[in-house]
C-alpha cells in the first residue's frame, strides 16, 4: 500500500486504458485489417493481373483510384469502432465497474486513443499497400502527394471518430448509433449537400459536411489542384431551364481548399470530442 503513488494528473490510467482497448478491439481490428488488405490487394494487384484492365496513367491517378475506397473503409471502421465507445458503458452497464476506478475524462481519452490507433493503423496499412504497389507499378519514387493525402485521411478518420463518439455519448444503443451515424455519413451529408448546391449553386460551399471535407483526401492528389473548385455540368439543348427544350445544369463542389479543409477537420475533431467528453461526464448510469 505504501508503494502506491497518487497523482491527480497521472496519465497512466489513460495509457492502461489505451492498451486494454487495443486488446479489447483486437478481433475487430483483425477483421478490418483483413478486409482492407483484401480490398487493397484486389484493386491494386489482382485486378491488374487482368491484361485488358488498364493501369492508371500516372502514379497519382493510381492512388486516386485506390483511394476511392478509403473513405468507405474509414467510415465503416470509425462507425464500428467508436459507436460503442460511450453508450455501451451505459447500455451494458460496464460503467458500474469501471467508472469508480478511473476518471471519466481519462477513460474517454484512453478509449478514444486506443480505438484511434487501431483505425489509423488500418488506414496506414491501406496507404502502405497502395504506396508499395504504386512504387511497384510506377518504379518510384512515391509521390509526396500520397503522404499529404495520408495526412488528410488521418485527420478525416479522427474527425469521423470524434463525430461518432459524440453520437455515442447520448445514444442509448450501440446498434442505433452505428445505423444512425452510417446513414448520416453515407447519405445524410450527401443529400443535404445536393440540396444546398441546388439552392445556392456555387455561392455556398458545403463546409459543414464531413463527407465533403473527406473529398480532400483524393482532391489533394490532383495535378493541378482543382481550380475552380465548383464545377457545373450541363446536359441537354439550348434554352435554359428544365424540360425537353432546355438543359439541365448539375453543379458540384469538388473539394474544399487545403487550408480550409484541414482547419475544419481539426475544428470537427476538437468540437465533437469535447462535446462527447462533456456529455459523457454528465451522463449518469
Amino acid at each position: 500500500m505504501e508503494k502506491r503513488t497518487y497523482s491527480l494528473t497521472a496519465i497512466k490510467p489513460v495509457l492502461y486504458t489505451v492498451v486494454f482497448e487495443l486488446k479489447k478491439q483486437k478481433k475487430k481490428f483483425y477483421f478490418f485489417l483483413a478486409i482492407t488488405i483484401l480490398i487493397g490487394f484486389l484493386l491494386g494487384y489482382i485486378l491488374q493481373l487482368i491484361p485488358s484492365s488498364l493501369l492508371a496513367d500516372t502514379q497519382t491517378e493510381f492512388f486516386n483510384t485506390g483511394l476511392q475506397f478509403i473513405s468507405f473503409i474509414t467510415l465503416f471502421a470509425a462507425c464500428l469502432f467508436f459507436s460503442g465507445i460511450i453508450c455501451s458503458e451505459f447500455n451494458k452497464k460496464t460503467g458500474a465497474i469501471v467508472f469508480p476506478k478511473i476518471n471519466k475524462y481519462k477513460l474517454i481519452v484512453g478509449k478514444y486513443l486506443g480505438n484511434l490507433i487501431l483505425v489509423m493503423a488500418i488506414i496506414t496499412v491501406y496507404y502502405f499497400l497502395l504506396g508499395i504497389l504504386g512504387f511497384y507499378y510506377y518504379a518510384g519514387p512515391i509521390s509526396p502527394k500520397l503522404f499529404y493525402s495520408y495526412g488528410i485521411a488521418l485527420l478525416y478518420v479522427i474527425a469521423l471518430s470524434s463525430f461518432v463518439t459524440f453520437f455515442s455519448s447520448f445514444m442509448r444503443s450501440v446498434n442505433i448509433t452505428i445505423i444512425s451515424t452510417l446513414i448520416i455519413l453515407l447519405m445524410g451529408f450527401s443529400i443535404v449537400d445536393q440540396i444546398v448546391v441546388l439552392i445556392f449553386a456555387g455561392d455556398f460551399e458545403p463546409l459543414y459536411s464531413l463527407s465533403y471535407l473527406g473529398s480532400l483526401i483524393t482532391g489533394i492528389l490532383n495535378t493541378p489542384f482543382p481550380d475552380p473548385r465548383y464545377v457545373e455540368f450541363t446536359f441537354g439543348g439550348e434554352g435554359g431551364g428544365f424540360g425537353p427544350g432546355g438543359h439541365f445544369t448539375f453543379g458540384q463542389w469538388i473539394t474544399p481548399s487545403i487550408g480550409m479543409g484541414i482547419t475544419l477537420l481539426v475544428v470537427n475533431i476538437v468540437v465533437f470530442f469535447i462535446l462527447a467528453a462533456f456529455l459523457f461526464k454528465r451522463r449518469q448510469l
Binding site: 487482368i50 485488358s52 493501369l55 492508371a56 496513367d57 507499378y137
Partner: peptide
Amino acid sequence: SKITMKGWRD
C-alpha cells in the same frame, strides 16, 4: 525517361 506499361489486349 520512364515508360509505364498500362495493359494490353489480344
